[in-house]
Write a protein that binds this DNA or RNA. Structure first.
Lengths: 214, 214
DNA sequence: ATATTAGTGTTGCAGTTGCAACACTTTACA
DNA sequence: TGTAAAGTGTTGCAACTGCAACACTAATAT
């Protein structure tokens, strides 16, 4: 994921943040970031710490949608988040909060560092769109088996390898695929018995796959 | 959805498109747009006609992910689309094709019309992200009932009304929720019997909803 | 006006999934 | 180091869902 301040000097970063009237806000561990900005669209950039986008299910289970660290960006929208969704600081964090409208208003600006920042945000937004497309592509598959295989396909494709290293644990994978963890374990077990895949901890190897001609 | 040429005069639009070395390409009915751009990231803007983002399921069923008309924007990525996804012209269409990289490269440019264009694209990209977040929020619900109720909640919330007018038919709604049409019909039928909702054609009325205190 | 096609609603059934309960392993940390 | 907490794998079962088959209605075209 692109860094929002890629190719921007520390000095210019300061100028930029002052131009955008951004505020660096401290959030203590486990505090809610979203609660403070329910009436405006903001762009948040993690300066220090870790932040999690969390959704609380009907039964009270909380699942992590996304985890963001230093220099990563999140955007919020008044209409998107409510009730069951929140953004919380996983540890004490410093977050740069920018009013979305300030960015739009400053687009006429012709300062070098601002243009670089916009360029970066552009790349980041595009990345986010494509990332979400991928997730939707997976979620629209109708069985756990197909969701999981689609996940493997996309990973394998983007890495150009039949070996996939899970970036998180199986519990989180189940959350990402929006399925029950134990049901996923069952399907993975079946796929192994069928000789489709091999697993060793978080390494999954696709043995063969007719669809993608492995 | 924001128009990509919002607040840009016809004359400046021409200058802009020439600056970005965009090409207006004609696509005949049912022809594939994506096939022609497998090796580059493009931004497409519909000048005339209608375009559909189509996904072909394992069983051969084709479902429409998105339908775009005049002035609407789509972006593609080399890594995102393959095999089962395509963008096709629903009717003879003129499409403005811009190389994604050209937009990025021109961000240093300080022409008014270019800044306005970037501003528009920015708004569009943000809209798309939030739209996709909504869909993901729905798709991660585990039952048809909950997917449908989440859809109703989001619609009702954004319109500020208990009356929801489906923008498409029940078949397409099922596709959007990624569930079987007849199974959705069954759930809707149950919700009606339970007195949760009332339907009259494409108008759905939420009668009461504990969660959102109607 | 009528034939054809597209959309809608119902239901049985088989296959899939969530959930609960459990055993076991790994990790975190006092 | 030992103990609690977190993660993993298995299985039975009830609930949910996709699919097929069907009837009916609405829209469209000739």
């Amino acid at each position: 994921m692109q860094n929002a301040f890629h190719n921007i000097s520390t000095n210019n970063k300061k100028k930029l943040l002052s131009l955008l009237e951004s505020k660096v806000t401290h959030f203590t561990k486990n505090s809610s970031i979203l609660n403070n900005y329910t009436n405006e669209n903001i762009v948040g950039i993690i300066e220090e710490g870790t932040v999690q986008l969390i959704k609380t299910a009907d039964n009270g289970n909380r699942t992590i949608i996304q985890e963001l660290s230093t220099n990563e960006v999140f955007t919020t929208d008044v209409n998107t988040f409510f009730n069951d969704t929140d953004i919380i600081a996983l540890e004490d964090s410093k977050i740069i909060i920018i009013d979305y409208d300030y960015i739009i208003e400053n687009l006429d600006n012709n300062k070098d560092y601002f243009n670089q920042f916009i360029k970066n945000l552009f790349v980041i937004m595009n990345e986010k769109i494509l990332e979400k497309n991928e997730r939707i592509q997976i979620l629209t598959k109708k069985t756990i088996r197909n969701k999981f295989l689609e996940y493997l396909n996309l990973q394998s494709r983007s890495k150009g390898s039949r070996n996939i290293y899970l970036p998180y644990n199986y519990k989180d994978l189940a959350d990402y695929l929006a399925v029950d963890r134990t049901a996923l374990a069952r399907e993975i077990s079946i796929l192994k018995k069928e000789g489709f895949i091999e697993t060793k901890g978080k390494k999954i190897t696709i043995l063969f796959d007719k669809k993608n001609k492995f």
